[in-house]
């Protein structure tokens, strides 16, 4: 600890800031109140307040984008901005074309110099990017828009805001609309369920240490819409949970984000098997009834357009009787 201490603490802070953001978000200016226009064209110069509360001004339509988060890269590609993306992080592996873009580093070791050299006119980042790094970029004269992507609404709003910023509002409305519609559809299809018919569920972002999605996270919104009761029992969107609390909550369905394991592979099966063999977890209903499900992290853990797939995956895991799992990878 003494030797690796400073690095560990720095990395951990980066992860904690990136992984579990505070519940209270600064007020976000709705993208269509004054900045967007009815015919879907954005007028420049454009001034908006980003999710960190900073006022940013775009003089003209941005043509060179750098994305500092995988979710924002996915959004940019989904909005048809692939040609404008000039830089991504080493984590940005989806869609596959994103891998071909120049990389500027990761969360904790992105290169300011590399970003400057790409001369972007708009940098997209999440609150996982250290604020000192953001202020450094701004001090260098670059325009940085920070997005808060904790709740389901945050994700939808991020898509719409990027649509406004980059003058692709019709496409953004379509992508955001699909997400909203997906959630509404789930709610409609589970509306008839009684409280007893809604299984106790737990969504583990990481298993070791156990981090779960609580109220205010987009996974929580999807779980509830899909007809489950989230038993995380915390008041934070993402929280470390003791094994004791998780086991005492006795989830009937345990959902695990695959992180980097590919769903359906031996690796994912092995995880489930080991959880089943852990004596501490053997009394849990989900383990007893074989309802531990590993879900593709790309669908359920990246706050972007692929949540459409995530909703389908989670619904099928929670209510296999109601929802079709066909088409799952």
């Amino acid at each position: 600890m003494r030797h690796v201490g400073p690095l560990v603490v720095a990395l951990l802070l980066a992860i904690i800031l990136g992984g579990c953001r505070p519940a209270a978000a600064p007020p976000v200016q709705p993208p269509d109140s004054g900045v967007g226009t009815s015919d879907g064209a954005t007028g420049y110069p454009l001034t908006v307040t980003d999710d960190l509360g900073a006022e940013i001004t775009l003089q003209s339509e941005p043509r060179r984008l750098v994305s500092l988060a995988p979710s924002l890269t996915e959004i940019a590609f989904a909005l048809g901005l692939a040609d404008r993306v000039v830089g991504v992080t080493s984590y940005c592996t989806y869609p596959p074309e994103a891998r071909k873009k120049p990389q500027v580093g990761g969360y904790v070791n992105a290169s300011e110099e590399k970003i400057l050299a790409l001369s972007p006119d708009l940098i997209l980042c999440t609150r996982g990017t250290p604020t000192t790094f953001i202020s450094g970029l701004r001090a260098a004269g670059l325009t940085v828009a920070a997005f808060h992507e904790t709740s389901f609404d945050d994700v939808v709003r991020a898509i719409e805001t990027i649509g406004v910023l980059c003058n692709v509002q019709p496409r953004a409305r379509q992508v955001a609309g699909e997400l909203r519609q997906g959630l509404t559809d789930l709610e409609r299809q589970t509306a008839h369920l009684t409280a007893e018919q809604r299984p106790r569920a737990l969504f583990a972002v990481w298993l070791d240490p156990l981090f779960v999605s609580g109220p205010g996270s987009f996974q929580d919104a999807i779980l509830r819409a899909a007809g489950a009761r989230n038993v995380a029992g915390t008041d934070k969107p993402y929280s470390n949970l003791s094994a004791e609390a998780a086991i005492a909550a006795d989830p009937q369905v345990l959902l695990l984000s695959s992180q980097h394991a590919v769903v359906g592979t031996a690796e994912a099966d092995k995880t489930i098997a080991r959880l089943r063999q852990d004596p501490a977890w053997q009394g849990v209903s989900a383990v007893k009834q074989g309802r531990v499900v590993v879900l593709d992290a790309g669908h359920v853990a990246v706050p972007g357009p692929r949540l459409v797939l995530g909703m389908r995956d989670i619904a099928a895991a929670v209510h296999p009787d109601l929802f079709d799992a066909r088409g799952m990878q």
Partner: peptide, 22 residues
């Protein structure tokens, strides 16, 4: 190594911090 393997840090970091959870 921690920087190279960045993506899978969490387990190592929490382990290095010390504790008996899990």
């Amino acid at each position: 190594l921690l920087l190279v393997m960045e993506q899978d840090l969490r387990g190592v970091l929490f382990w290095l911090l010390g504790g008996l959870s899990g």
